[in-house]
Simulated scan of single mutants.
Amino acid sequence: MSTPADTPTGEGLFDDVDLGWEHLKNRLFKYLLFGAAMFGVVALGVLIFDVITDFYVGLTEFNISLVDFVTRDGSRRPELSGFRGAIVASVMLMALTAFLSFFIGVGSAIYLEEYAPDNRITRLIEANLANLAGVPSIVYGLLALAALRNGIGLGPIVLVGGVALALLVMPIIIVSSQEALRAVPDSVRRGSYATGATQWQTIRKVVLPAALPGIFTGTILALARAIGETAPLLMVGALFVNRMPRGLMDRFSGMPTQIYSWAAEPSQHFIHLAAVGIVVLLTFMLVMNGIAVYLRNKYETEI
């Protein structure tokens, strides 16, 4: 069957296009993306190599004992200085941060996803929460400084540091909890309503158990970010403290601020102490990320 003369056949459609140049642009763009990705990987590798090198030199040439390092408090003498107070302070900060942010964050996410109407105000709140999740951490430190230290008159104590970090991670917990709740299919909710369950019973017995793996994962990852934050703690005045905190009203020096304090010292011994502290801090962060992955793999179920 012949094709009519006035029917377009597609021939000559790309006659004026240099396909060789288009393929070259595609390859160049692919190489550009690959180079951008590798730049971050290489930079991270260089930093890790530098830290590991200083860590090894500290253990071998400066005779830093890991046991003594994690069982001694801070000191102005590098040969007597340890990391115990900073570790205990960071653990206390994480416990307080989780307590202050988890219930408020998850409760806010439940309200926004399950109860709040879909209107302009709700969408504005959700947009602001997404923006707050990306605000630099130093802003939350300045907020805690203005409200708690300058406003109420509290000193650089564990309570103030915990509030600053809770403000930092709360938007992240809310957003991640919302995503976990959205991942629960509506058919599950409708099935629960069909059995006569109320909305709160459906949320408590059906929706939350299905969303908990995602909620826990987001919370732990947010806390893993908080444990390495330095700027908020510096803003509230958590600098060098040579003793271990024993309560929420005690002065403290967390792991990041202790590392910052050592790295600013002119002595090479302190520099290598900072490298050992970085390795300990990275270990904590890797363990927390590993726990998050484990919880997701263990409790995630198909609905």
Results as ranks from 00 to 15, higher is better:
2 S>V: 13
4 P>V: 09
11 E>N: 08
12 G>A: 09
23 H>Q: 12
23 H>D: 11
24 L>W: 15
28 L>M: 12
38 M>W: 14
49 F>A: 15
49 F>G: 13
50 D>V: 13
52 I>S: 05
58 G>N: 00
59 L>I: 10
61 E>S: 09
67 V>L: 12
70 V>E: 04
73 D>K: 06
82 G>R: 04
88 V>D: 00
89 A>C: 08
96 L>Y: 05
101 S>H: 09
101 S>I: 13
101 S>F: 11
101 S>C: 11
110 I>S: 01
115 Y>C: 05
115 Y>N: 02
117 P>Y: 06
120 R>I: 14
120 R>L: 14
121 I>L: 13
127 A>V: 14
127 A>M: 14
139 V>N: 01
145 L>H: 04
146 A>H: 08
147 A>G: 04
149 R>G: 03
150 N>I: 15
155 G>Q: 09
157 I>K: 02
158 V>H: 04
159 L>R: 03
161 G>S: 08
164 A>L: 07
168 L>R: 05
171 P>Y: 08
171 P>K: 07
173 I>G: 04
174 I>S: 00
175 V>K: 03
177 S>W: 03
178 Q>P: 05
178 Q>A: 06
193 Y>W: 14
193 Y>A: 10
198 T>A: 07
199 Q>D: 13
209 P>T: 04
209 P>H: 05
212 L>Y: 03
214 G>V: 04
220 I>A: 05
221 L>I: 15
224 A>T: 02
245 P>T: 10
248 L>F: 15
252 F>D: 04
254 G>A: 15
257 T>K: 04
258 Q>R: 10
260 Y>I: 04
271 I>Q: 01
274 A>H: 00
277 G>E: 07
277 G>H: 06
284 F>V: 15
285 M>S: 06
285 M>V: 15
289 N>T: 10
290 G>Y: 08
291 I>C: 09
303 I>Y: 14
